[in-house]
Amino acid sequence: MDLYTIILYFFAVVTLGSACIVVFSRNIVRAAFALLFAFFGVAGIYIFLLADFIAITQLLIYVGGIMVLMLFSVMLTSHQINVDAKTGTIQTLPAILIAACVGGGVIWVFWITDWKEKSDLPVIDTTAAKIGELLLTNYLLPFEIASVVLLVALVGAAMIARREKKG
């Protein structure tokens, strides 16, 4: 095993381990913080896939944005200003069903995919430039739709915030 394999497995273990904590921890804040390490592991694996731009985006968006927002909502909820905020288990059966469906789907995709192994893949120097080009040529429509969706969400959020003030 060379160094890179060891690091790859390290990232995998970090991801899976913290994901397990997220699921099994009864302390909701700890679960949220464990999610942080899961995001990290995933970012590491992205780097091994030569997707450095995605990896850093993962850090920026998930760790810097989503994680903080999640922690915010946990911390600002009333009755939670205490270290031992707990979660419980509800709706076991539907949860199992959905989890089984999703898990099965992922494994199925994993099996049917025709994995191509190529060791001499050319290392693209600037993925960011390529991604930008693709976004503005081949994938312009999805890109624009995503931006419209985000705009709608922003306007909606502003609307809701405003209405509360009046009432």
């Binding site: 804040v29 913080f33 731009f53 985006t57 810097g64 994680m67 903080v68 205490n82 993925t127």
Partner: peptide
């Protein structure tokens, strides 16, 4: 010497936020 240095710097800052949030929460 990575190609996304400037982007990486912005992302790294978010980790500090997490540390501070964690400290704030854990102190009870």
């Amino acid at each position: 010497n990575i190609n996304l240095g400037a982007f990486f710097l912005v992302a790294a800052g978010s980790l500090v936020v997490i540390g501070i949030l964690m400290a704030g929460w854990a102190s009870n």
